[in-house]
Design a protein around this nucleic acid. Structure first.
Length: 634
DNA sequence: AAAAAAG
C-alpha cells in the first residue's frame, strides 16, 4: 500500500495545503500543548506562540527573517517545510529516475545553490561531510575507517516482542529510503544492513515505538537515523510557525556525553548530506552562541546533551512542539538516577507531544529491568528488540581477568603496555584505552605513564571540553596511543583501532563493564579486554564470572571461587532475566508481574507474542535460560 | 562513593 515516496513527493504540492502531522494521529496538527512553559506565558501570542492554524501561519509576520523560519506564505509549502534549504538531492538533484518531482513541487524548492540572500555568504554550499568528492575512494584508510566486517554479523541472534512486529529486511534496497539517502549509504560503504538495522529500520518506518538492545558498534546510530531522515524527507510538515528566534526541530536525539553527541551529529550529517534535512548539535562546555547561530539557520534533527538542551528550552530558543521523533541513545544511562529528572523534564514537562503523537526510540547495549519500567512511560505500544552482540565474544573480544593488588596495578599495566608495543600491526599503532574509577586517578595515572615513556593522555569530566576533544583526537590519531579515561568514555564512543581495553579499576556495575569493553572489538573486529581484579571488586565477582562464562571466556578458578562465595546475585545490578542479550523485554518477565499495566496494547494471548528470529543460532544456545530467550548475548 | 550533564 505504501506508495513509492518519490510519488508522494510529486503529489506533495497538491497536498501541501493540509498541514500533515500524519502518522497515526489522523492527520491533524498537534493540538496546542496544554503546558505552556513559564517563559512563554504572558507574551503576545502572535509573536511568540506557534500559530494555531495554517491560516494564521500564512499571515506574514512582522519579524520574519531569512535564516530561520523562512517565508511564511502558504505557497512555499509546496517547496517543503524548510524553504530556506531545498531538498535538492531528492528529485531535483537529478539523481533519481523520477527527478521531475523537485521542479514540479513548486519553484520554491530551490537547492542549496539557489538560496537567496547573502547573509550566510561562504556557507552557501553544504560542506561535504565525507571529506572528498566521491573520488579517491577505496584507499586503505577509507576501508579501515568505514569498513565493517560483515562476516562477523552473520550469526547474530535476534529477539523481538510486542504486537505485530514488522519483519526484518535483508538489504537496503528492500526499503524505500530515498535516493539521496541511498547515495549516502553507498558513500559510507554500507553494503548491507547490520542485524540491528535489518530489524529496527522496518519497525521505525512502520511508525512504531521501539526499545532496542544492541551494542553501539553494531550500527545503532544508522538504525535510528535512516528512518528519521527518510521520514522527514518523505512527509510534508506543517510549516513551523515561529516566535522570534525559536526553532522547532522535528527530531530530537539525546545522549549522555558531549563526545557522543558530537559523534552522532557527525554520522547523522553524513547520512543527511544533500537530503535537505538539517542536523544541528548542542552540548555544554562549548560557547552557546555558535550553537545558537547554527540553530537559527534551521534545524530538523537536533542532537543534544540534556543540560544544554534544558538551557535552550528555558531560553525559548528551542521548542519541542513539533517533535515527531525522539531517540534516546544509551537509554539506560539516560534514565539512571543522575539523568532521569532532566530527561523527564525534557520529555514530559516541556512542550513535546506525548507518546503516541511522537515516535520514541530507545537504544542501549544494556537494559536493566528497572530502567525498562521507567522507560515505558515514554513509549506507546512499543516493540522490544534485542540483538546479540556482534559476533561471538570468543573470537571478537577476548576477556581476561587478572588478580592484581592495588599497589601492583601500575607496574602490571606497564608490563601489558610493553607487550602491546611489540605487537603493533600493519604500521598503524594499536590503541589502548585504560579505564579508571576517578578523575583524579585518571590524571595521576596519565602523568605517571608519561613520566615512564608512554605517550598517554586523559579524558574525564574535570577537563575542559577543549581538552577533552583534543585528548580524543590525539588518541584516535595515534599521537598518544594510550588514553586514560573515566566512565565518560565508557559508552558509545566509536574509536577505530582500539585493540585493548584495560579495566585498571573495575566498575561497580557489570553493565558499565559491558559498555567499557565494547570500546574494542567494534564493527566486527577483534579486541582484547583485560581487567585488574582484587579485593575491592568482590561485589562484582559473581556478575563478572557469570558474564564471562556466558561469553565462553576462560574464567580463572580463583574468580569462580570468589563468585561462589559471594551472596547470590549479590551485585546490585545483576543481569536481569539472564541470557546473553543486554536485556530482555521486562513485559515478559512472567504473568505474576504487572506487565500488563505497561502493555498499552493488551498483553493477553497474542499480546506477549514474540517472534524470535535466529540467524544461525548455534544449537547449544538457548539452554538454561527462560522461555523465549533464544540466545546469545555475545 | 564516583561519574556525567548548565554556567
Amino acid at each position: 500500500m505504501r506508495t513509492s515516496w518519490a510519488d508522494s513527493g510529486s503529489n506533495s504540492a497538491s497536498e501541501s495545503a493540509v498541514p500533515a502531522y500524519s502518522g497515526n494521529s489522523s492527520g491533524s496538527r498537534p493540538t496546542r500543548a496544554t503546558y505552556v512553559p513559564p517563559h512563554l506565558r504572558n507574551r503576545t501570542p502572535s509573536a511568540d506562540l506557534p500559530a494555531a492554524s495554517p491560516a494564521a501561519q500564512a499571515q506574514p509576520q512582522a519579524n520574519d527573517r531569512v535564516g530561520y523560519g523562512g517565508p511564511p506564505g502558504g505557497s512555499r509549502w509546496a517547496g517543503g517545510s524548510r524553504p530556506d534549504y531545498g531538498r535538492q538531492a531528492y528529485g531535483s538533484g537529478g539523481r533519481t529516475g523520477g527527478g521531475s518531482s523537485g521542479s514540479s513541487s513548486g519553484g520554491g524548492s530551490s537547492g542549496w545553490n539557489n538560496r537567496s540572500g547573502g547573509w550566510d555568504r561562504g556557507r552557501e554550499r553544504e560542506v561535504n561531510p565525507f571529506g572528498n568528492d566521491d573520488e579517491g575512494e577505496g584507499t586503505l584508510n577509507e576501508q579501515e575507517n568505514t569498513g565493517i566486517n560483515f562476516d562477523a554479523y552473520e550469526d547474530i541472534p535476534v529477539e523481538t516482542s510486542g504486537d505485530n512486529v514488522p519483519p526484518p529486511v535483508n538489504t537496503f534496497a528492500e526499503i524505500d529510503l530515498g535516493e539521496a539517502l541511498n547515495q549516502n549509504i553507498r558513500r559510507c560503504k554500507y553494503v548491507k544492513p547490520t542485524p540491528v538495522q535489518r530489524n529496527a529500520i522496518p519497525i521505525i518506518l512502520a511508525g512504531r515505538d521501539l526499545m532496542a538492545c544492541a551494542q553501539t558498534g553494531s550500527g545503532k546510530t544508522a538504525a535510528f537515523c535512516f528512518p528519521i531522515i527518510t521520514g522527514i524527507m518523505r512527509e510534508q510538515y506543517a510549516q513551523r510557525s515561529r516566535g522570534p528566534r525559536t526553532v522547532y526541530p522535528l527530531a530530537l536525539i539525546l545522549s549522555p556525553t558531549r563526545e557522543l553527541s558530537c559523534q552522532i551529529h557527525d554520522e547523522a550529517r553524513k547520512f543527511s548530506y544533500q537530503t535537505g534535512v538539517k542536523v544541528v548539535v548542542a552540548y555544554g562546555g562549548a560557547p552557546i552562541n555558535q550553537q545558537l547561530r547554527e540553530l537559527e539557520r534551521g534545524v530538523d534533527i537536533l542532537v543534544a546533551t540534556p543540560g544544554r538542551l534544558v538551557d535552550l528550552l528555558e531560553r525559548a530558543r528551542v521548542s519541542l512542539q513539533m517533535i515527531r521523533y525522539l531517540a534516546l541513545d544509551e537509554a539506560d544511562r539516560m534514565l539512571d538516577m543522575g539523568f532521569e529528572p532532566q530527561i523527564r523534564k525534557i520529555v514530559e514537562q516541556m512542550d513535546m507531544p506525548p507518546p503516541g503523537r511522537r515516535q520514541t526510540m530507545l537504544f542501549s547495549a544494556t537494559f536493566p529491568k528497572e530502567i525498562q519500567r521507567l522507560a515505558s512511560d515514554f513509549l506507546s505500544n512499543y516493540i522490544f528488540l534485542a540483538v546479540g552482540r556482534v559476533g561471538s565474544s570468543t573470537d571478537l573480544i577476548i576477556q581476561r581477568v587478572e588478580y592484581v593488588h592495588e599497589t601492583d596495578k601500575r607496574s602490571h599495566l606497564m608490563d601489558l603496555l610493553h607487550a602491546q608495543r611489540e605487537t603493533e600491526t600493519n604500521g598503524k599503532q594499536s590503541l589502548t584505552l585504560v579505564f579508571v574509577e576517578t578523575k583524579k586517578g585518571a590524571d595521576s595515572l596519565e602523568h605517571w605513564l608519561c613520566m615512564n615513556g608512554f605517550p598517554a593522555t586523559t579524558i574525564h569530566g574535570d577537563r575542559t571540553q577543549q581538552e577533552r576533544e583534543m585528548a580524543l583526537r590525539s588518541f584516535k590519531s595515534g599521537k598518544t596511543p594510550i588514553l586514560v579515561a573515566t566512565d565518560v568514555a565508557a559508552r558509545g564512543l566509536d574509536i577505530p583501532h582500539v585493540a585493548h581495553v584495560v579495566n585498571f579499576d573495575l566498575p561497580n556495575d557489570i553493565d558499565d563493564y559491558v559498555h567499557r569493553i565494547g570500546r574494542t572489538g567494534r564493527a566486527g573486529k577483534s579486541g582484547l579486554a583485560t581487567a585488574f581484579f582484587n579485593e575491592n571488586n568482590m561485589s562484582l565477582a559473581r556478575a563478572l564470572s557469570d558474564l564471562m562464562q556466558e561469553a565462553n571466556q576462560e574464567v580463572p578458578a580463583w574468580l569462580t571461587r570468589f563468585a561462589s562465595r559471594a551472596p547470590y546475585n549479590g551485585g546490585k545490578n545483576r543481569r536481569s532475566g539472564g541470557g546473553r542479550f543486554g536485556g530482555r523485554d521486562f513485559r515478559r518477565e512472567g504473568s505474576f508481574t504487572r506487565s500488563t499495566d505497561y502493555y498499552g496494547g493488551g498483553n493477553s494471548g497474542s499480546g506477549g507474542g514474540s517472534s524470535s528470529v535466529g540467524y544461525g543460532v548455534p544449537s547449544s544456545y538457548g539452554g538454561g535460560y527462560g522461555p523465549g530467550v533464544a540466545s546469545a548475548w555475545d
